[in-house]
Amino acid sequence: MPTPGERDARARSGGRDESPEERADRRWNELLQEVRVAQTGVQILFGFLLTVVFTPRFATLDSADRTIYVITVVLGAATTGSLIGPVSFHRIVTGRRLKPETVIWVSRLTVVGLVLLLATVTSALLLILRVALRSPVVPWVVAGLVVWFVLCWFALPAWALYRYRTRK
């Protein structure tokens, strides 16, 4: 029969019968799967961004579009750093009995990476749609897409967290 302290620990771990180390291992594996998806997309996007400057069309961009491009590349580099950061973080601290702390820090780094990814995608959309459409509706289309991303990536999970946390 579990002691009251063990029951409290189980309740804090979401009802699972796992030690703090087992919980950290499970959360780490879940986090790795999430980061792998984001890393792949960011690396492809960043790779394409790096090639744009070497195309003939780049020379025809006006000053504003070149500025947006530079901002997009810098944001893409920062996003790449944040979403690849978990690999080096884990490699440097592995074997030092810091798995629960590593999961917390890497989780935070991943959220920063997602915010930077939102900024990168926004900037890339702005540049691409400005060049493709040359229309005053472009900022509105981009703003609508940003709202959609924010809803999908942040608002919906926050709402679910609030709704189901208050239900217990």
Rank of each mutant, 00 (worst) to 15 (best):
R163T: 09
D17R: 08
V147P: 00
G113V: 07
A24V: 05
R23Q: 12
F48R: 10
A59R: 14
D8S: 13
F149M: 15
P20L: 09
T120V: 10
V73L: 11
K168M: 07
A11F: 10
T102R: 11
W159H: 06
L31P: 04
P56C: 12
L45K: 06
V73W: 00
M1G: 13
K99H: 01
T122W: 04
V137L: 15
A11K: 15
S135I: 08
P100I: 10
I84T: 15
V37N: 10
F89V: 12
R36D: 09
R165W: 04
I68S: 05
S107T: 09
S82Y: 03
A124R: 08
K168F: 03
A78S: 09
L50V: 14
A124H: 01
V52G: 05
T166P: 00
L49A: 14
T79S: 13
P139M: 07
E21R: 10
K168W: 03
P2C: 13
G144Y: 00
W105H: 12
L125R: 05
A158F: 00
A119R: 11
S63W: 02
G15R: 09
V35H: 02
S107I: 03
P139R: 08
R130L: 02
S13G: 12
V141D: 03
V53D: 00
V52W: 09
T110D: 05
E101P: 00
E22L: 12
A124W: 05
T60H: 05
H90T: 11
L61E: 02
L50D: 03
A64S: 09
L127T: 05
S13P: 04
V53Y: 04
T102S: 12
R163S: 08
L117Y: 05
L129E: 05
G113T: 06
I128F: 02
V111G: 00
Q43K: 06
K99L: 13
T67K: 02
L129M: 08
L151K: 00
L32C: 09
E22D: 08
V37E: 13
I128A: 11
A78W: 06
E30S: 14
V141N: 02
Y164E: 13
R10M: 11
G81M: 13
T110G: 02
L98I: 01
T166L: 11
R91L: 15
V53I: 14
R134P: 01
Y164C: 10
V73Q: 03
G85H: 11
G47P: 03
R36A: 14
M1Y: 08
L118I: 05
V53F: 04
A160K: 08
G81Y: 06
G144I: 06
P4M: 11
R108G: 08
P136C: 12
A132F: 03
G81V: 14
Y69V: 00
I71Y: 01
V131M: 00
A143H: 00
I84V: 14
R26Q: 09
L83K: 04
P20K: 09
A155K: 00
A9L: 15
R91D: 15
L109S: 10
T166H: 06
P86S: 11
P139N: 07
S19C: 07
Q33E: 14
C152T: 07
W153Y: 04
D25H: 04
E6G: 10
R96C: 02
F89W: 15
A143P: 00
I104D: 08
R27L: 13
T102K: 08
N29L: 13
R23A: 07
L31K: 07
L75K: 06
L32Y: 01
A11Q: 15
T166Y: 01
L127R: 06
A143F: 01
R163F: 01
T3A: 14
V74E: 04
Q33S: 14
